[in-house]
Design a protein around this nucleic acid. Structure first.
Lengths: 252, 252
DNA sequence: GATCATAGTCGTCTTCCTGACGATAAACAC
DNA sequence: GTGTTTATCGTCAGGAAGACGACTATGATC
């Protein structure tokens, strides 16, 4: 693949990942600790260089597998396996976003169920699920009272954009099911919405809405009591990807 | 800005523009004729290399100004001047999308009122507004009976994605006003929706909807009869950017 | 084992929004 | 004036959502 380097400025192209999940009623993102400068020791989004023969989505899927072990499927594919939803988010190319050189980062958004434990090259201390609220508060203090350093590079902005994308997209699509295991209850799905939006939803109206939307949920016949209380029906994600009319996010 | 070329594969980064407008009741996109290989003589989306000191949005705004003379304003800025709306669309990086070398293109979407005549370096024959329907039909025949060559590179895909973005975004935002001049009537705005969606809307329900949504339209006090018939009130775009509840796109 | 707490599920009622469509208003062409 | 075109207001029925009451089926507690 010959080219004339004088004809255009050379760029490094990376993919960065906003991997979201819901743990303990909170929206969490995967963060990895940087092992080398710049921003050594700081938390950052997982990511890496795009290889010479890779498409952008391939690179993102590869990084996702390396960091979490999750297989990815695109926005169009159904939620058959236990993989994560993966889609392109946006591209960030400020000339000064990386002090070393000109780097353009194609950010991707991944939504995963709670199950997997993070693994960054097998070193658990260098990867963690952190509440997005905690990752986004600049210069504040975490739950343990330790001062919180902001994310490396422009990753706070990328994370914020990814969270906003997720928040708006579960309104009009069935994407919230990507946060759930293969089989789940209406209540578990509702808790996903509540965690992502940070609001409380009326269980009765929510139940009516999701069970009344054709193609959204398919009953599996089983029930579970894992949430306590009366046994709940188990559902699988249906074929519908678009919700019409959408799920309404409460105002304030 | 030193870097080690062996540490990562070098990429060329370009911006491509999907510039949409509404002319004669049809959604049209700006196309330029390629003057050199590959795809010499074929129509393509305007675009170019990102410069070494430019942000991506700056590069897109520069290309837009070069091709159309339009000033751009971002998604957040109000529609004060006569500029065009400009936002990032998506990034395309298939390893084989450009036969010469590895090129990653950050596509942007611009929405402009009808006014400007295209100018590609002053040569009008090398730039034109074409109905998107015509640009997207692969291997068909245009209105003049001439065979239509598909757009260069993956630009048909990019254009299709841009059109889809515009179609969905005018549902829940006030973005349709970006297709209108500073002052416009309800009927003109309705014709924008009809052209972008390719459907007919009920004038009475549309009028009730847009005038009843707070912050969407601000009456200027003037009237016009430029559409014929009874004089219509003139409006300016209001401060509201999000439409809640959204404008509903008819099914079928 | 009765009681309680918890979560799930079904209904009702009111309100808001939309789609369908009738009716009137104000310009222009002839 | 008559007809045509576009704008604007009004009415009505149907659907969806928010608020909330009521009942059900578990496990936990006394």
């Amino acid at each position: 693949m010959p080219y004339d380097p004088s004809a255009f400025p050379p760029f490094a192209v990376t993919v960065d990942l906003v991997v979201l999940t819901v743990r303990r009623h909170a929206l969490c993102a995967l963060a990895v600790r940087r092992g080398e400068p710049p921003f050594q020791g700081r938390w950052a989004l997982p990511g890496g260089f795009v290889r010479d023969d890779e498409d952008l989505s391939q690179a993102a899927a590869r990084e996702l597998a390396e960091e979490t072990g999750l297989r990815a499927h695109g926005p169009a594919a159904p939620d058959q396996d236990n993989g994560a939803h993966l889609e392109q988010l946006a591209t960030y190319g400020d000339p000064k976003r990386d002090p070393r050189m000109r780097v353009v980062s194609v950010a991707h958004l991944a939504l995963a169920p709670d199950l997997p434990a993070p693994r960054a090259g097998g070193d658990a201390s260098n990867a963690r699920w952190a509440p997005v609220e905690e990752l986004l508060q600049q210069g504040g203090y975490g739950r343990d009272g330790e001062p919180v350093a902001p994310l490396a590079f422009d990753h706070a902005q990328i994370l914020a954009d990814g969270v906003e994308r997720a928040r708006s997209k579960i309104e009009y699509s069935s994407l919230a099911t990507a946060f759930c295991p293969t089989e789940f209850t209406v209540g578990e799905l509702r808790r996903v919405y509540e965690a992502v939006w940070g609001v409380a939803l009326d269980p009765r109206n929510f139940h009516r809405k999701v069970t009344g939307t054709p193609g959204f949920l398919v009953p599996t016949g089983g029930t579970t009591t894992r949430q306590g209380g009366r046994p709940a029906q188990l559902f699988r994600a249906g074929g519908a990807t678009l919700l019409n009319p959408p799920m309404l996010r409460p105002e304030v």
